[in-house]
Simulated scan of single mutants.
Amino acid sequence: MDSFAAGAIAGVTEVLTMYPLDVIKTRSQLSTGKNMGIIASFNNIVQHEGVGRLYRGIIPPILMEAPKRATKFAANDMWGQFYRKLFDVEKTNQSLSILTGASAGAMESFVIVPFELVKIRLQDKKSAHLYLGTMDCVKKIVKQEGALALYNGLEATMMRNITWNAGYFGVIFRVKAHLPEKPEILNNFIAGAIGGCVGTVLNTPFDVVKSRIQNSSRTSSSSSKYNWSIPSLFIVAREEGFWALYKGFVPKVLRLGPGGGILLVVYNVLMEFFRK
Rank of each mutant, 00 (worst) to 15 (best):
A66Q: 08
A66I: 07
T204L: 12
F115C: 05
A237V: 05
S220I: 14
N93E: 14
P180M: 12
G261S: 01
F242E: 10
P251W: 02
A177W: 06
Y226Q: 02
A6Q: 09
G192F: 08
S222I: 02
A156Q: 08
N44M: 06
P61L: 05
N215Q: 02
M18K: 09
M78H: 01
V15S: 05
T157D: 03
G133P: 04
G105Q: 03
Q214M: 14
N161P: 08
F115M: 03
K247I: 08
L21E: 02
S41I: 01
K119M: 14
I235D: 06
I112T: 11
N187A: 04
T100S: 15
G146K: 02
I213Y: 00
D207N: 09
M158L: 13
K140Q: 15
K125H: 13
R275G: 15
L130W: 09
Q29R: 05
G260K: 01
V253N: 11
F110G: 14
D2A: 13
L154P: 03
N227K: 14
E184L: 09
I45G: 13
I172T: 13
P231G: 10
R218S: 14
G257M: 08
G248T: 01
T163S: 15
P183N: 02
P183M: 05
E240Y: 07
F242C: 11
L122K: 07
K91H: 13
L233T: 09
P180C: 01
L154Q: 11
L270E: 06
F82E: 09
K85W: 10
V198S: 11
S220Y: 00
K143I: 00
A147Q: 03
M18D: 00
V89A: 13
T204C: 04
E184P: 11
T92Q: 11
V118E: 01
G260Y: 01
A149G: 01
R84S: 14
G7E: 05
C137W: 05
I38H: 04
N93V: 10
F273C: 07
L99I: 10
T92G: 01
A147M: 04
S232Y: 01
F242I: 13
K176S: 12
E181V: 09
I39R: 07
G37N: 03
M271V: 05
S103G: 10
H129G: 13
Q144F: 00
I98D: 05
K25D: 10
I120K: 08
Q29V: 02
L263Y: 12
F234A: 10
T219M: 00
D2R: 12
N161Y: 14
G52F: 04
T200E: 14
N187T: 05
N152I: 04
M158Y: 00
A6M: 09
H129A: 12
L122I: 05
A66G: 12
Q144M: 10
G199Q: 05
L54T: 04
W243Q: 13
S229Q: 07
G196T: 12
K176H: 12
K276T: 12
A128T: 04
K126Q: 15
V236C: 06
S127M: 09
I9G: 08
L179D: 03
V208Y: 00
I172F: 03
F234I: 11
I39W: 07
V15Y: 14
G101D: 10
M159K: 03
V138A: 04
T17E: 03
Q29T: 06
K143Y: 11
A74Q: 14
A244N: 06
S224P: 04
W228E: 13
